[in-house]
Nucleic acid binder design. Structure first.
Lengths: 204, 204, 204, 204
DNA sequence: AATGAATGAGCATTCATTCAT
DNA sequence: TATGAATGAATGCTCATTCAT
C-alpha cells in the first residue's frame, strides 16, 4: 500500500543480487501462505496479493510460480489435502485398532471439538474445497482424495457400507454444526454415531 | 464529492426509461435474479452487476433495493430457504406417512438424483449458504432454518436421534457426490440409509 | 441504508397524511441541517443525503426545497453569514465602546480561543465559504457580507485603514493557527494586534 | 473477488500500450497533473480519474503510484509547497536586502496582483491546503512549512512580531480579495502594510 | 530466475437528479 | 405540497495479468 515500493535497498555494487538458495522453497512458501489465506479468509479472499501479503513475499513471486489464480487454488488445495492424508496415516499408525465403542467415542469427540471451533479451520478449508470442486471439475480429483481417504480410514474399522455412511454423516454433522446457530448436542451425536457404527446401544 | 453525472441524456425518441412503480415487485425481481446468479456462478459470482445483468435491470436498481452486497446475499439466501421450506411442507402434505422402507427408497432416490445433477443447483445453493454462514454469523439463522426444517421433516418418520443422523448423512452424501469424481453407488447409499433409518436390513 | 424504506406507517385510513404546519419551517430545518453538515464535515461532505440524514428528514425533502446542491450550498452559507452578522450586532450593542487596549485584549482572546478549537467550527465554515467563493462567483456577495461586516465592526473603534489591516490579520492569524501544527503564541499575537490597532506599546 | 478482467484485448495493430519504464518520472507526471487539477478545480475536483485525464495517463497509473486519494492529496500539496519554498529562496537570493519602503511596495504589489487574478492559482492552492489541513491533521506539517517559510522570509526584513503580523495580514488580505466581490484598494493596502512594517507613514 | 512496473477491467458504493404519485 | 422510487454517472479501490529488465 502507499506509493509503490521505492526499493532503494541495493545489495551493494558487488554482491550478487540475493542468491535464491532453493527454487522449490520459494514455491512452498507461496503455497503455504495460500493455505493460510484460505483458512483465514476463504477462497473468496485468495488473491495473488493477499497471498503475497500473508507470506511477506513480492506479488510477482506469486504470479511467477502460479501464473493464474486457478493455479494457486489448485495447488493450495492439493497441499491441504496432502497434509490431511498424512495426518490420517499418522493416526492410523498410532491407533491401529480400536473397539467400536472407542471409535464412536473418538468420532464423537472429533465432531464436538470441530463444531466448537477447535479444528474448525481444517474443516472449513475442506468444505471450501468441496464447494469449489462443484464448479471447477479440475478440483474434483483433489476433493475425491480426501473423501476417499476418509472413507478408507474408516474401512479399517467398519464395513464399506458403514464406513460410507459414517464418513458422510461426519461431514454433514460438522457442516451443520459450523453453519448453524448452535453446536450439536454430544449425546445426540454419540447416539447417532453409535447406531451408524453398529454398536446399536448408545449410552444414556 | 465531485460533480457527479450531469445527466444531460434526455430519454430521446428511443425508449422512455421505463420507470417502474411497484417496489415490491422490483425487489422480488432483484432477489430472484440474485438466486439465479448464486445457483449458476456461486456466491463469488454474485455482484450487483451480475444480478443486474441476469435480471436485465439497471445496476442502480439492485443497489437501491439492496444497498450492500451483504444485503443481497442475506435476502437471496433467505428466499432460497423459504422456497425449500415451502417445498418440504408441500412434500409432507402430499406424502404424509410412509413405511420406513418407502422413506429409505425416497431418500436414496433423492441422493442419487441430486448427485446426478438433477436438482444439483438447489443443493449447491444450500452448500453455498452453509459455507458462507461459517464466515458470516449473520447468515447462521438462515442456515439454521434449513437444517432444522430438514431434520424436523425427518422427525415425522424417525426418532430425533435417527432424524439427526439421517439429515447429516444426506448432507454429507450429496456433498461428497457433487464434489467427488463419481456419483455414489445406489446400493451402497440404500444400504447405508436403511441402516440409519432402522430398517435393519442392511448387509453386515 | 439497508433495503430502501419499507414505510409501512400509514397514518391510518382516515387521518389526513400528516399536515405540515408551516412550509417555511421545513425549509429552515433543511438549511440548519446543512449548516451543521458543513461545520462537521466540510463542504465536501455536503450532499442532499448527508443533510437529510443529519436532519432526520426524507432525502426528497432536501431536493424539493433545494433542487440542486448549489442551492443548498448557497443558502446554507447565507444562513451562516446571517447568524454571524447578528452575533456581531449583538456584540456591538453589548460592548459599544472600548479603549484600544481593551479591543486588543478582546481580539487576542478571540484569536487564541479560535485556534484552540473553541469556536473553530464557526471559523472553519467561514474559510470554507471563502474558498468556495473563489470558484463560485455566486457565493462572492455572501462572502463579501461577512468580510465587510467584520471590517465595519472594527471601524467603530479604528480608522478604516487600520480596521482593514486588523480584519485581514485576524483572518490570517486564525487561518494559520488552524492549519498549522501549533497554536500561536499569545504574546506574539497580542504584540502584533497592539501594533496594528495603534497602541504601539505591547506589554512584555 | 469475481473474475476480474479477462483482458483479451491484444494491443492490436494500433498502438502498443507504451509501457513506461521510469517510475520516478511517472510519479512526477502524476503529481504534476494532480497539482494542475487542484489549481483548476480545487481539491473537490481531485480524483484519480481527473488526474489521469489531466495528465493523459491510465487511471491505474495514478492508483498504482498513489494508492489512495489521500496519498495523492498529500503528495500534490507537498510538491506545491516545495515549489513555493524554492521560489521564496530564489526571491531572497535575488533581492537580498531592501528598505522598508521597498518591502512595503513589493508586498502591496503582491497583494494587488494576487487579487487581480495574476498569480491567483498559486494562492488558491495554498488556501485549499490550509482548509484541507484543518480537517486532515496529516496535512498540517505541510501547511506549516509554507506558513513558517513565509514568516521566516519576512523576518529577514522585520522583527519576528512584525513578520508574524505581516504574514497573517497578507494571507487575510488576499483571501478576502479573492473571496469578496471587489479587489482591495491599493492605497488602503499600502497604508496598512506600511503601518505594519513600521514605516510609520501610514495615515491616521 | 525473479521481480517491479504497468494497466485494463471490474466492483461496491454514493450521489444528484428526475419521475410518479 | 411532498416524498418514495428509480437510475445514469461517477468514485475509490482491488485485482489478474502482462511486460521489461
Amino acid at each position: 500500500m502507499a506509493e509503490a515500493g521505492t526499493n532503494d535497498a541495493q545489495p551493494g555494487p558487488t554482491t550478487p543480487p540475493r542468491r535464491r538458495r532453493d527454487p522449490e522453497a520459494r514455491k512452498r512458501e507461496v503455497i503455504e501462505a495460500a493455505e493460510r489465506v484460505i483458512a483465514a479468509r476463504g477462497l473468496e479472499g485468495l488473491t495473488h496479493r493477499s497471498v503475497a501479503a500473508e507470506g511477506d513475499l513480492p506479488v510477482a513471486s506469486t504470479t511467477y510460480h502460479f501464473a493464474t489464480r486457478d493455479d494457486l487454488i489448485q495447488l493450495a488445495f492439493e497441499r491441504s489435502v496432502d497434509q490431511f492424508l498424512a495426518y490420517l496415516e499418522h493416526l492410523d499408525a498410532v491407533q491401529p485398532t480400536a473397539s467400536t465403542a472407542d471409535l464412536v467415542e473418538r468420532l464423537t469427540n472429533a465432531v464436538i471439538t470441530a463444531c466448537a471451533g477447535e479444528n474448525a479451520t481444517h474443516w472449513t478449508v475442506q468444505y471450501e474445497l468441496f464447494l469449489a470442486a462443484m464448479r471447477r471439475p479440475a478440483l474434483r480429483p483433489t476433493a475425491d482424495r480426501t473423501i476417499t481417504a476418509g472413507r478408507a480410514s474408516l474401512e479399517r474399522h467398519l464395513s464399506p457400507a458403514r464406513a460410507y455412511a459414517v464418513s458422510a454423516a461426519l461431514s454433514g454433522m460438522i457442516l451443520h454444526g459450523l453453519a448453524g446457530t448452535h453446536t450439536p448436542d454430544r449425546t445426540t451425536v454419540h447416539a447417532a454415531l453409535a447406531e451408524l457404527c453398529g454398536g446399536g446401544t448408545a449410552p444414556a
